[in-house]
Design a protein around this nucleic acid. Structure first.
Lengths: 347, 347
DNA sequence: CGACCAATTGACAACGCTGTCATTTATGGC
DNA sequence: GCCATAAATGACAGCGTTGTCAATTGGTCG
């Protein structure tokens, strides 16, 4: 079955009775080929099962048909969704994806990136948080003239080069939802300050509190770092207050999981004694007991859109109209319930 | 800073006063270059910051310096560990990694793989479960003459082309550990039958039971499918027995998480009323309440070894001696404890 | 010192494609 | 039917490496 050497463009040209260049045009879907000719060539291509040699293509055209995905060790499910989304569109467009983990705090990051870019010769890059928030990276890429798209940057002014979700609005919604359950003492756990988008969720919380006519108490705000452990720490801090909150809204699910763990350890019933909400809707959210109320972030779609946008920039896709904002939505599960401490509010 | 066009091998040759071919030899670390010459060339290379053009290299040498990672939507953390491991060694050897999700049940899988191989021209492949267990895939690759390495295949006879862990032994250990806590009614949840290695954990359980002098009761064996939901289902089945088990050992953590969830819903205390153990040590395991006793599988290292093995086959690495078995180990956390129902056994 | 052999080096032709530009073939207007 | 113009096609020179093989160099031995 392994039919000897694979056919080259010359084979196709010979059999189709046209020049190599014409086959090239057909293979690249270029204009200025008569329909009849195109059809004949396509037939031979299908017949021979011809696929252009990517190395030769790259060498001649100075494009690698590779796009790179830069990330710094995010949560596993976040990463996988990002990858799936990016892969979906890139594959569909004939591009392959090179994944490249980095350490955003590495002082040599830019040097390392420059090396990586020179070595694998990607045609463009997709940046994910926290790299999408780093000026040093953005500037480097601009200097190098390397096309890129940012996923969920905090800075929303870089229009046309970024895809984000409505973090802030959804956090306001979640806050309002907690209030609608009767909660007034709603604490918030801020995310990692280097992760712009996550950190910004705090704004949504504040806006939500304001809209509900609640005041943001300073002691109800804890600074987390996106990790489960930091969630535990923040929960310890918040639940040790002489008047602890009746609801805790964490900027991400991992921290919310930490809160749940700490609450269990203290013998608090959820949501009886404490309501907990998170953000992201990672798989873990539904595995927790009780299942976590959270916000579903369309990560995969963000990545897909980011890749689309990038490929459009690279001229690999025709159309325009890529929505730069994809919407998140509340997912109500079991970890939130009425505030039983405030008598008046309950049914 | 973006110093114009990047230098080519010809530039290096000119400046070093040698032929292009000699530079090529130095760049590829080939023998038969006088030390003095080599040194001079290396200097110029460092000076110019020369990096060979991968496309040209690939075209001329018929190697892509790319290896592919094939997987079918495993758990996120499994995948991420696999990727990290594979990336670590491949990058270090100058290879890039192309990730390729597949659907192992897809009837067109082999065709699709063949396309993918032809398109991206990878030099070799790393297969992860359940693809590492599929004869159709293995045969296809053999026919195509495509080098590959299998991660954790059930079949251990394919020596030199596979990396695995001691699943079975560790499962026997875990079973013995549960017995040492006083448990005799130890149930087991079998993993997905298509995932060879996971399914084989059952053997370890059986061996462990035998070694402890316990008989395997048929009604204590449930068939799961690796998912959280199937864990819930199996737990329902096992806990509804008129004489339910005092410990449940699930073939993976996701299913164990399902068991914990169901136990909570039934008001069972863990580990007071029921001990639960899993396998994999995914991050979730420590986030659960109570934290899950499980088996830590060195996934990352398996992938790293697999990549090493593959790269050795490709002639990209010199050394030999890659351990084909990497060891798993028990991680005792809070979800397992003494069997309180059997009076005699407890302190 | 000269022959002889191995180690070192280089010339040159691929590798399979795309870009450029010249050439050929249709199309339209009168 | 003829010319001007546009569309379609092809010839050919790279793209930046590596493989092959011939040429050169250095070293050894008698």
């Amino acid at each position: 079955m392994s039919a000897g050497a694979r056919p080259t463009i010359a084979d196709v040209a010979r059999l189709a009775g046209v020049s190599i260049k014409t086959v090239s045009r057909v293979a690249n879907n270029e204009p200025n080929v008569r329909d009849g000719t195109r059809k004949k060539v396509l037939e031979v291509i299908a017949d021979l099962n011809y696929l252009p040699n990517p190395s030769a293509r790259s060498l001649a055209s100075r494009r690698s048909f590779l796009i790179g995905l830069l990330y710094d060790n995010p949560s596993a499910s976040y990463l996988v969704n990002i990858q799936d989304g990016a892969l979906k569109t890139s594959r569909a467009t004939g591009y392959d994806l090179i994944i490249h983990p980095c350490v955003y705090k590495d002082p040599n990051l830019t040097t390392e990136l420059q090396m990586m870019i020179a070595q694998s010769k990607v045609d463009g890059l997709v940046l994910t948080p926290p790299l999408s928030d780093m000026d040093s990276v953005v500037n480097l890429l601009d200097e190098l003239g390397m096309p890129f798209v940012r996923v969920a940057p905090a800075d929303r002014s870089d229009t046309g080069r970024a895809i984000y979700t409505n973090d802030s609005e959804t956090c306001a919604e979640m806050t309002a939802y907690l209030h609608s359950l009767g909660h007034e003492d709603i604490a918030f756990i801020i995310g990692h300050p280097d992760h712009g988008a996550v950190a910004q969720r705090f704004d949504g919380y504040q806006a939500g509190m304001k809209k509900c006519g609640l005041t943001v108490r300073k002691d109800f705000i804890a600074q987390g770092y996106n990790s489960f452990e930091s969630g535990v720490d923040c929960a310890k801090q918040l639940l040790s207050l002489k008047r602890p909150p009746t609801a805790i809204f964490a900027s991400n699910d991992d921290m919310a999981a930490g809160v749940i763990k700490e609450a269990h350890d203290r013998g608090l019933a959820i949501p009886g004694d404490l309501s907990v909400a998170g953000f992201d809707d990672i798989p873990l959210a539904s595995y927790l007991w009780p299942a976590l109320t959270t916000v579903r972030q369309p990560i995969q779609q963000m990545a897909a859109s980011a890749a689309e946008l990038l490929l459009t920039k690279l001229g690999a896709r025709d159309d325009g109209e890529i929505e730069s904002v994809v919407k998140s939505e509340l997912v109500i599960r079991e970890s939130t319930g009425p505030d039983l401490r405030v008598s008046g509010h309950v049914n």
